[in-house]
Design a protein around this nucleic acid. Structure first.
Lengths: 141, 141
DNA sequence: AATAAATGTTAGATTAATCTAACAAGCGTT
DNA sequence: AACGCTTGTTAGATTAATCTAACATTTATT
């Protein structure tokens, strides 16, 4: 609801909470810090902000949970990440770099550009028939 | 020579100096501020940093010049911008948004990704014969 | 159960980028 | 040449994100 527009940094933290919960079932401060290569106090501060925004909850000294809204936002960011990563891989970028660059791009691209990238990716998935896969049809309507 | 890795912000300022000099012959504080939608004191501070880094020179109260090194770096950034913008346009993004998003992307993408995007763009420029411009041939070699 | 190790939090400093307000210089018109 | 407008600079505050150091809690080991 509140579209308070997260900073890039907070988007990263929120996304990481989500990813760790998917991967490990729990998002711990230590693991978030390690994954984002920051120190634990940075995570603590970020969590305070995300709590203020109503995106996460946390009982002191335990794992971080997502609120419903937090889940929704995190999933959106993660989807962007996945879209961009596969896009880059399709361009021939190696997986590690695709992951890293997707991680930066996911915070800055406009909805329009994301939409076009989606268009670009979709046909290939939907029509694996066309072997040559020349895409980017400048669609007329 | 010194690869002190400019911040995104300083890259933007340096690029804008270059663009204004190309467009108007002179880069004035006021115009830089307007173009980047910041206030003049922000420009002044940025110029102090760029001077420290040996990328620009400026006589007090007059236009900003690029050093040889500054010119080199600025041209590199501008090239990235142009590459990314045309890439986005090719994907179907409108010019204004392509420009804006290119401006963000130009600071964050890895050399590998930039290289792949270049590869992606090249064939089309070399073969302007194909009228329909259906692109992204997953080139085999 | 006591203690040690691991994990989490709080306090406070640092850095970068921005802003506003106040001051200074240059220029253009009369 | 003097005044006023435009442009540029300096000083100082603010905000966000990080860090280190110190402290607190929880978990594991004996």
């Amino acid at each position: 609801m509140e579209h308070t527009k997260l900073s890039q940094s907070l988007e990263d933290y929120l996304e990481m909470v989500h990813m760790l919960r998917l991967a490990n079932g729990i998002a711990r401060v230590k693991d978030i810090a390690a994954a984002l290569t920051v120190k634990m106090p940075s995570v603590a501060k970020a969590m305070i902000e995300l709590k203020k925004l109503g995106l996460v909850t946390q009982e002191p000294y335990s794992g971080i949970e997502l609120t419903e809204e937090g889940e929704r936002v995190a999933a959106m960011i993660l989807n962007r990440h996945i879209l961009l990563k596969s896009f880059l891989i399709k361009l021939g970028v190696s997986e590690a770099i695709a992951d890293k660059d997707a991680c930066c791009m996911e915070h800055i691209l406009s909805a329009e550009t994301l939409g076009k990238i989606e268009d670009f990716m979709k046909p290939a998935e939907m029509v694996p028939l066309a072997r040559k896969s020349k895409v980017l049809k400048t669609k007329k309507k």
